[in-house]
Each structure stands twice: as structure tokens, then as C-alpha cells.
Design a protein around this nucleic acid. Structure first.
Lengths: 192, 192
DNA sequence: CAAGAGCCTAACCTTTACGTAAACGACAAG
DNA sequence: CTTGTCGTTTACGTAAAGGTTAGGCTCTTG
């Protein structure tokens, strides 16, 4: 039976403000579809630290942590970054914890503003990284489509009844290369 | 110095048609910016087989192979696919060799057409795979931008002089989550 | 033709990203 | 309070993707 996970957690000073609906590692893992091992490993690498620990030593994750885990997973699976790169992208967990801390600790709007501005910039850098990845993928698509066009050209030749030896093309079915040196376009006939 | 690499290679039947400008492994590696080890490893995995081998046993790569290597590298670095996935995407080298072979072997336009059509379809599948990857990245960007918007909201609040405790938001600076059930009394639930 | 650079295979080493198991503590239920 | 299920740490195992020798050919050139 699932009782009331309302553990008081690491609240540094005292504040009982946390009624945060915390999850234990298995529940968190199920939620974001990762193994517990992976989550612990990511912690080991400094990618995230659970929001709290129970009296004993159970890791307890809040909604924020789940977001972060989902993001990590996305970066890993969808974007194909290594955990090292992800770490650099997220900027390490200690900095995050410190900021989280500072944010709660201060009442000063200026301070809070600064922290938020910082966070926005971080997100912007992440987006930029993702965009550049998309661009590279688009370049690859362009190349692939070039290959495709080339193939269709050959097809057209065949359909036009050109006998194989009178077109001056390469031998393999797939092509679309980018040879820097010689390459005579399909002018006249040229045997090898 | 760099002499005339005009080796006769594996030409199956006889045909001395190859004046193909072949490169040895190091040269190829330099050209596509991979290590020789990686290239050999990819061969071991069946991702590509050099167009030819010299009298002795030197691997010799043609322009086609270089394209393929560049493509593999792109899939690995830019798209973040594993070599296994890349293998599936490229469809293994034996099939390719067979087709290359068949293409050269036949004079029959119908046969040639079929092979080309096949190649076009393969390229189309590759493009589709890349597109889906882009979509997932775009989804990630959307999420990030959601986070960003959230942060800017908080900023606006602060700039409007809202004291911290009178807005009903979460505590951490970064957020933009997707909380599915804001505290449903999940009694008696315990998956797995 | 001898030398040296380059290549070959085979084998072992390393790093990353976990899986899996051992030994022990934590915690809700009966 | 015992017990079953979960959790914790520590440690060893493994697959993927190469790096790095070692020992032995192969070229091409002086």
C-alpha cells in the first residue's frame, strides 16, 4: 500500500514547507522509464542529485528531478549525446544545487532575478546546441537527397533507353559523391 | 612521394576497367577524418568492405567508399546512432556488394532498373529515419522553450514587484514540468 | 637489393554506460 | 517484532567502440 510520502527531507534550516510528493527511486524510474541503476549512475556522474534523502538513506525525487531525468534521457536517446556531454550541457549538479539553495535562501529580488537570468541563459545555450544538431542532420538529409537525385537520374537514363556503356557515369548503383578532382559531366560519349 | 595508385584490384572476371584512383587506408582515413582502426573496425562489423585489395593484401578504397565512410561518420557523430543501428540503416555490406556486382554484371535494363529502384527506396528510408530524429529534437526544443517561458514568467513577476510568497508557484528556479496528477490519493497502488 | 615506411592480423587494454550480485539497513504490514 | 519488499553501497561483469602494441609482410625508393 502506498502511504503518504511526505517526508521532511534535507530542508537545511528547518522549514516544514515540503509536502512535495516525493518518489523513491523505483517509482521515479518507472515514471521516467529508466532503470534505477541508470539513475544512480547519473547521480554518480553528477548529473542530478535527488531533492532529498529519507531518514534512513532513501533517495527521494521531486517533480523537478523527474523533469531533469526526462531531459537527460532525451539528450541521451534522442539527441545521442554522451553522458559527459550531457553533464557539460546541464552544468554540473553542484552549481544547480547551489543556485536552488541561494534562490530559496534569499528574499532579495535582485538576487533572484540574477539567478533566473542565469537559468534562462543556460536554457538558451541548450536550445542552441540542439538547433545545431538539427542543422547537421539537415545537412545529412540534403546529401542523402543528392544521392537520391543521382540515382533517379540514372533511372531516367535507363528508361530513356540509353545503353549502359554510352553514359559517362560511375559504376556503382549508389553514388552522389563529392569528388574534388576530375568529374566530367554527362557531355557526349566517353568510354573508359 | 605519391605515385600512381592504379592497382588492378578484385575485378571479378577480368575487365581492366579500373583506373579508379584508389587510396590506401591511411589516405582514406585522412580524407574522411577517421582513424585506420575505426575503418577496419567498421569493416569487421560489416559496414563496408574496401572496393579492392592489392596484390599483397592492402585495403584500397575508392571514392564510393569514402562517401560511405563519410556517411557512417555523420550517422555516428551528428545523428548519434550506434554502429549497430548504422548497420541496419545501411543494410549490410554483403547485400551492397552483391548489388554492386549484379549491377555491373547485367546489361539488362530491367534488372538495372530494379536495383536502382531498390537503392532509391533505401535512401528514402534513411531520410525518413533522419527526419524522425529531427522531430524528436524539435520536441526537445519545445520543451526547453517551455521551461524558458516559465522562467521568464517568474522574472516578470519579480520585476513587477511581487513578493515571493504571494504567487502560487513552485520553489525552484527551473521548472516547466508536466505534472500528470497533482497529488492523487494513490492508495493501494504499487506497480511491479 | 636493402631499407624504411606503410599495411596486415591478432591480441590485449581502456572507457563508457550500464547489468547483476552480495551483504546489509530501512520500513510498512501483519 | 518479525518479515517481505525495497533501498543502500561496493564490487565485479559486459558490450560497444575503439587505442595500442607485437610480429610479420609489402611496397617503393635510394
Amino acid at each position: 500500500m502506498c502511504y503518504d510520502r511526505t517526508v521532511t527531507a534535507e530542508t537545511p534550516a528547518s522549514l516544514p514547507h515540503s509536502q512535495a510528493n516525493l518518489l523513491r527511486i523505483q517509482e521515479a524510474a518507472a515514471e521516467v522509464d529508466l532503470t534505477t541503476r541508470s539513475i544512480r549512475y547519473y547521480e554518480e556522474l553528477g548529473l542530478l542529485k535527488p531533492a532529498a534523502r529519507s531518514e534512513g538513506a532513501y533517495r527521494l525525487y521531486d517533480a523537478d528531478d523527474l523533469d531533469r531525468l526526462r531531459f537527460i534521457k532525451g539528450l541521451r536517446d534522442d539527441a545521442g549525446f554522451s553522458l559527459g556531454e550531457i553533464g557539460r550541457l546541464l552544468e554540473d549538479e553542484t552549481a544547480r544545487a547551489r543556485n536552488r539553495e541561494r534562490f530559496r535562501a534569499t528574499e532579495d529580488p535582485a538576487e533572484r532575478r540574477a539567478i533566473l537570468v542565469d537559468a534562462v541563459e543556460r536554457v538558451d545555450r541548450q536550445v542552441a546546441t540542439l538547433r545545431s544538431k538539427i542543422e547537421r542532420l539537415e545537412a545529412m538529409i540534403s546529401e542523402a537527397e543528392e544521392r537520391r537525385a543521382h540515382l533517379r537520374e540514372h533511372l531516367a537514363e535507363i528508361d530513356a533507353g540509353v545503353s549502359p556503356h554510352e553514359a559517362g557515369h560511375r559504376h556503382a548503383p549508389r553514388s552522389g559523391h563529392t569528388r574534388r578532382s576530375e568529374h566530367a559531366p554527362r557531355s557526349g560519349s566517353h568510354r573508359q
